[in-house]
Design a protein around this nucleic acid. Structure first.
Lengths: 137, 137
DNA sequence: CTCAATGCAAATTATTTGCAATCTT
DNA sequence: AAGATTGCAAATAATTTGCATTGAG
């Protein structure tokens, strides 16, 4: 099935590319570093190099299959592009990534760019949050 | 004058720290990489190592004197904290960084975090924009 | 004088690249 | 078979760290 996604993206259907796509689709967290993916491959006895993981992810990004995020310093994380745009919220205590969509914010962003004489091409919005203290209920 | 800023931040007043503060204050662009600052120092015949620049910037960040941004991959940029919070817009054609403030977006962000059971601690919003095509006026 | 701060070189971390061997079509 | 793709090792880029020396209070 996903071999079609690759062909559609103009990429040859190779074993490494298929494996990496599958891992991204199966991933619970939805946001993985190249290293995460590489370790998954290793644990599945796959013989794919880390350099290939990086190369494939870059190709996927160019092809629009994947989005790359540079959250707080360290490694970049990659996320399979499932069509619907969204922004991210990161729980700084657990590291968990939560997705959200807010049309109002999207609209305001376009408006701001416009007011300054620009057209909005891309944006990156990340909220760093902390769980609310439970009130003694 | 700025020696007070350093003392207030609990940092010893040393030559490298003063120089770096001054460069940040004098900088036209307001957003400099460690390398940028290092080169400025070199051109002023200062004998300060790049490692020190990084160390000092990190201390400044911890002390709240400076904010560090990880815009699109590559080097981090540092900006002197002049009190008023703002977000950034980057002209992808010229690389220019434009600052803006929008209370409505700030409010929506707090609201979104709240709705998910979190408190907003920090956020990062960057708009990547392109100049509007001039209409043939 | 005492300990924090610095310079320099070496170490790390994340990612990229060269190239010969290996697949896809 | 022809050219794209991969693995591995070596190369980069950005930032950090160890340690002997210097400097601030």
């Amino acid at each position: 099935m996903e071999s079609q996604d690759l062909r559609k993206a103009g990429l040859k259907v190779t074993h490494p590319r298929m494996r990496i796509l599958e891992i991204l689709e199966a991933s619970q967290s939805r946001h993985m570093t190249a290293e995460d993916i590489y370790k998954q491959l290793l644990s599945h006895e796959e013989d794919i190099g880390l350099a290939t993981v990086y190369r494939v992810l870059t190709q996927f990004e160019t092809a629009g299959l994947v989005t790359k995020h540079n959250f707080e310093g360290g490694q970049a994380v990659f996320e399979l592009d499932r069509g619907k745009h969204h922004d991210h919220m990161i729980d700084i205590e657990s590291g968990r990534v939560i997705e959200f969509v807010n049309e109002e914010i999207e609209r305001l962003q376009r408006e701001i760019a416009d007011k300054h004489g620009y057209v909005l091409e891309e944006h990156s919005l990340v909220l760093y949050v902390r769980p609310k203290k439970k009130t003694g209920k």
